[in-house]
């Protein structure tokens, strides 16, 4: 909310480029407007997300090699022309592994966010639209969950479920669900008690129509923004679990697992931790900036 306000102040007014001209000029003007609306950080973030999308869908376009190709003679090569991000203890190319790891890390982050948002939707709508006792009950549960920091909650769930990829996805999803639930409950409440919903009800529309036409659209737009930020956060949490040795295990090229494996060599081969971590940080930062832009546009 805070940054949204600040960013909206800097955004140009939408009608500035409505000059007559050919279709191509109009399209260019529109593209320019979008770019100006995004601002420099937004454009950088969009480029980073584009790069990640390519890395997820066609990693061979960015890094044609095999991420698990071992070359013992080239072990611990520092970053250079041959190996942009250097090589690890088995001589595997770190750049190739970072590119090919995008699918695993982002996929896990997106899956965890989907679980968190799904659970948050159920709890948030139930609390926001349900009877008083349900709202109070869910409120109490959320209050208890908020007393546990995200990673502590995720650790607990891993302790219950056992370490592993599925467990870490589920743990991060469940640990982030209370945040979504609280945000959605507040949003649903404010929409449900707003003037236009009352007006729609007075016009004689049924509950379902009001829900479909007003409550759901006005609640879901902010959710798109929050979920975009949330994927970045979830990638960080999932990688933190892998880093601690509780998620994806080292041989596979997942960013957190690469960090875990590289931690042992931090004194001698800094590139093994710095570059995978940079990918995680860039992902989280660009998704945060993009999510806020979406939020600014939506409000």
């Amino acid at each position: 909310m805070t940054a949204v306000v600040a960013e909206r102040r800097g955004a140009p007014d939408g009608g500035a480029g409505r000059a007559p001209g050919s279709a191509g000029a109009r399209a260019a003007a529109r593209a320019g407007r979008v770019l100006r609306g995004l601002g420099v950080p937004g454009v950088l973030a969009a480029l980073a997300v584009l790069w990640m999308a390519v890395a997820v869908l066609r990693p061979d376009l960015l890094a044609p090699g095999d991420p698990n190709a071992i070359d013992a003679r080239a072990a611990f090569t520092p970053p250079g022309a041959d190996h942009w991000f250097g090589t690890d203890e088995s001589g595997r190319d770190v750049y190739t592994r970072v590119v090919h790891g995008a699918a695993a890390s982002l996929g896990i982050g997106a899956a965890a966010t989907a679980i968190g948002v799904g659970a948050g939707l159920v709890l948030g709508f139930a609390a926001g639209l349900g009877p008083r006792w349900l709202d109070a009950g869910i409120g109490r549960v959320l209050e208890v969950l908020f007393a546990l920091p995200t990673l502590v909650l995720a650790l607990l769930l891993v302790a219950v479920l056992g370490a592993g990829v599925e467990a870490s996805v589920l743990a991060v999803g469940a640990a982030t669900a209370p945040g979504y639930a609280r945000m959605l409950r507040a949003r649903v409440r404010s929409v449900a008690t707003s003037g236009y919903v009352e007006a729609a009800r007075l016009e004689g529309h049924g509950r379902l129509t009001v829900l479909r036409r007003h409550v759901v659209p006005n609640t879901l737009w902010p959710l798109v923004s929050v979920a975009t930020l949330g994927i970045g956060q979830a990638v960080v949490w999932v990688c933190a679990l892998s880093f601690l040795g509780l998620g994806t295990l080292p041989p596979s090229p997942e960013w957190g697992a690469m960090l875990n494996a590289g931690r042992v060599y931090i004194d001698t081969a800094w590139w093994l931790t710095v570059f995978p971590g940079l990918a995680i940080t860039a992902t989280a930062a660009s998704l945060t900036v993009l999510g806020r832009r979406i939020g600014a546009v939506a409000s």
Binding site: Q233, C239, L259, R263, V274, G277, T281, A284, A285, T288
Partner: peptide
């Protein structure tokens, strides 16, 4: 911009960079 990036910095990476 620095604030936005700082807010998302993962501890495991920031700590590793500081150690390096």
């Amino acid at each position: 911009g620095a604030e936005v990036v700082a807010a998302v910095l993962p501890h495991f990476w920031l700590g590793a960079v500081l150690i390096v």
